[in-house]
Design a protein around this nucleic acid. Sequence first.
RNA 1: GCGAACGUGGCGGAAUUGGUAUACGCGCAGGACUUAGGAUCCUGUGGGGCAACCCGUCCGGGUUCGAGUCCCGGCGUUCGCACCA
Length: 813
Amino acid sequence: MSEHPAYTPSEVEAKWRDRWRDRRTNEVDLDRAPRPYYNLMMFPYPSAEGLHVGNLFAFTGADVFGRFKRMQGWSVFQPIGFDAFGIHSENFAMKIGVHPAELIPRNITNFTRQLTSMGGMFAWEHVLSTTDVTYYKWTQWLFLQLFKQGLAYKKKGSVNWCPTDKTVLANEQVVAGACERCGTIVEQRVLEQWYFRITDYAGRLLANLDDHAKMDWSESTVLAQKNWLGRSEGAEIRFAAGASTIAVFTTRPDTVFGATFLVLAPEHPLVAVLTTGGQRAAVEAYVAQAGAKDLVSRKVGDKEKSGIALGSTAINPATGQAIPIWIADYVLMDYGTGAIMAVPGHDERDFAFATRYQLPIVRVVAPEGESAASPLREAFIEVDRGRLVNSGKYDGLPALEGKRAITRWLETASHGEGKVQFRLYDWCISRQRYWGPPIPIIYCDDCGAVPVPEEQLPVVLPQIDDFRPDDSGISPLARHAEWYFVPCPTCGKQGRRETDVSDTFLDSAWYFLRYPSSEFGDRAFDQARTARWLPIASYIGGNEHAVLHLLYSRFITMVLHDAGMLGFEEPFRTFRAHGLIVKDGAKMSKSKGNVINPDDFISKWGADTFRTYLMFLGPFQEGGDFRDSGISGPRRFLEKVWDLVSLATHPDCRDAEIRHEILVKWHQTKKRVGEELALLHYNTAIAALMELVNLLREQNCCEPTLVGELVQMIAPFAPHFAEECWERLGHTTSIFDSTWPAWDPALILEASITIVIQVNGKTRGTVTVGRDADEAAVRAAAGQLDTVVRQLEGMAVRKVIYVPGRLMNFVVG
RNA sequence: GCGAACGUGGCGGAAUUGGUAUACGCGCAGGACUUAGGAUCCUGUGGGGCAACCCGUCCGGGUUCGAGUCCCGGCGUUCGCACCA
C-alpha cells in the first residue's frame, strides 16, 4: 500500500501549470481548428485587491464548461483579458497616490497569477487589456465608425456633479441626492456630452430577444433587457397653445376627453414662450429649484408632487376646451416628448397633482356598476375593464376599443398619431475624466467637430501626473496645452482636441471581437477569423451586466453588422447567467469588508479541491452563501479517487471482473454527468461522481478502464489532479485531448427494479422484481408484503393503479 | 408600485411527464485502529411512538388513486426596474 505516492496538490498543480504552458496545451489554432467553439466569460476589472471568491466561482464555472466542450471534441477558444480603464482605477489611484498607468500593470500581474493558479484553460497568447494602446486605438476607431454613420452626436445634458470630488457622477453613484463617497449634496450641471443613438435600435434590440435562432439566453436576462428597453404603445397628441404646439406622448389616448390640463417638464423648451407675465418670476424660481435637484432624488416617486401654472392655456382637441398648462418636476424631459396630457381621473400621479392644486378631475372610463357621474375617490387606471363615458361619440366603447378608435380619429384630424415609445435613453459615452480612451475628435473654429482621420489613430492618452479632476467640469486633459492644441485635420488651422474620454462600457462592448484577432495591428478584427469564431457559442457571466454591458455589446454588433463589417447581428448565441456568491447574505465588496481572498484557500486546499468545492456548493446558476465549512468533502472525494487510481495501477487489478451492478452504475453515471454538465448543473454532476466512487469503494472495484473514465469526468472540475491521475494510469497525452466517455444504452438498465407499493396513496413497502415482470407478477409480490396484507384486510379493492417500473397503488374503501 | 426568482433535516442542497421526500456533501453521535488524533475506516442520523403506526417540503384551501412538484389565496426572503405618462 505505502508504495503509492500521497496526493500533494501543490506539487501536482505546479507540475501541470508548467506543462500546459510548455506544451501549449491550451492554445488553439485559430485559422485551422476543425470545430471552433468560442467559450467566453466576462473579463474582470483588475482591482488592487485581486480576484475574490465570486470572480473565481464565475470563472471556474465557465472553465468547467470549456474543458467539457473540449473533451467532447470541440476546438475550444477560451480567452481572457482585463477591463482596466475607468473611474474605479482612477479613484483608487488618487486615494493611494499612485498613477493608474503604474497601478494597473501591477494589478494585472497579480490577476494573471491568480487566474493561472486556479487552473483556467485560458488562451493566454490572446490576452488583452483595454488600456493597451493597441486595443484602445480600435475603441477610438469604433467611435469613428459610429460618428460616420451619424450615430454619435453631441448634445447638452444634465449630469450629477459633486462639488467636493469635482467630478461628474453616474446616477448609480448618487445615493439619496448625495455623493456616495463624500456625502456632499450633488448639483446638476448642464454639459455638452457625446451620445450614441442606441434608441434608433430599440425596436430591433427588442425583437431579436424573441428570435431563438439568433439568441438563446437565460430567461432572467432576456426579461431584464425587455424591461430596460421598456416598449410602450400609445399615441402622440398635439395640443395647440396660441402659436405653439405642444406634443405629448400617452399610452392612454382613449382618455383624451379627460385631459383637464397639460404638464411640461421644467426644462421643456416651450416653458419660456408659454409663461405669462404675471407668472414669470414664480415659474423661473421653480425651474431653478428643479434644476438644482439631482436626477436621482427627482426620480423618486413617492414624495409629494409640486408644480406651477404657466398662466397660459392649450386646446384639448377632443373637447375643444381650453385647459391650463403647468410645469412639474414629475414630468421628465428625457422621456417621451417631455410633456404630458394630465388625465387625473385615470392616472395616479395626475390625480395626486390635481387634488393638491384643485384642478378638475373628469371621469372618462367607467367600470361595471359605475356611471359617467360616479365620483372618483382615486384614479381608475384599469384599461381592460370599463367603458368610455363623457367622451362624445365614443361613449360606450370598451376602453381598449376606444384607444384604437380615438387614435384613428387623431390621425384623420391631424391631431396626432399612434406611436411606440421606448424607455431606453441614448447612451451617454462622455466622461470628464482622465483614465480612458480620448474621444477622437478635434474642434476647429471653422470646420466644427472634425473626426480624427483613422490613419492618425491612436490618439494616445498622454502620461500626465495631475490627472485629478477640477471644478471646471472639463477633463484634466484640457490643462495640457501640448496635447490639447492640434492642427485641424481638415483645414490645418489650430484646433483643440476633445478632452473627454469614453465610457468604460464602450471598451467592453467589443472586446470579444478583438480576442481572436488580437495579433493584428492593422485591423480591429480580421474578417476570416471573425467569421470562423463568431458569433460566440457560449457566454457565461453575471446578471449584474444583464442590461448595460450586454445591451451595449448587442448594439455595437448591430451597428457593425449594418456597416457590412460583421455577418451577424447578435454577438452571443447563448448566454447563461451564473449566480452570485454572497457572504453572510451580503454581496462581497471591500466597503463591507467581507471579501474572501481565494489565494488562502488555494494554498491550503489546492486549486482542484477549491474549484470542485465551489461547483459543489449549490446550483451554478443560482449562486449562494460562501462558507468554508464543507470544503473537506470535495478534498476527501479527490483523495478517494487518488486511492482508486493507485489501486488501478496495481497489476492484480487488471483482470477483475466488473459486477453487473457496477457496470450499470458506471454507464448511468456517464449519461448523467454528461447531461448535467451540458446544463451547467455542476453540483449534481459532482454528486453523481461521488455516488460512483462510493460504490466502487464498497465493492472493492478498481477496474482501470472504469477508473480512467471516472478521472476523465472529474477532469473539468479538477484539471491538474485529473492530468496527474491520467498520467499515472499510463497515458502520455493530455487528458483534455482524450474523448469524453460514451455510455451504452443497453447497460443503463438495471437487472431488477424496485416497485413502490401503496395503499390509498400511502407507501406501504416495495417489491423488487425482474426488469420485465408484468403487472400480475408485481401484484403477486405485493400480496406477500405484511404491511400491505394488513392494510387490505377486510377492505374491497376498488381500483389498482399500476405504473410500470414505478409503483402499484391499491385503492380500497 | 411594477417585474422576476425562491421558501425542503442542525447546515449547503437532491428529487423525469405529479409516483419511495431528504440523493450527494458538511456537521453530529457511537464504534474500530492508535501513544495520540482535529488522519483514516465502519455504523447511525427528519420528528413522535415499546410497537403497529402517526406526523412531516413557509401557512390556508383545492384538484388527484397519489402533490415538494399542478391550481387559488396568504406570509416571508432575495434580486432587477422604479414619478416612463
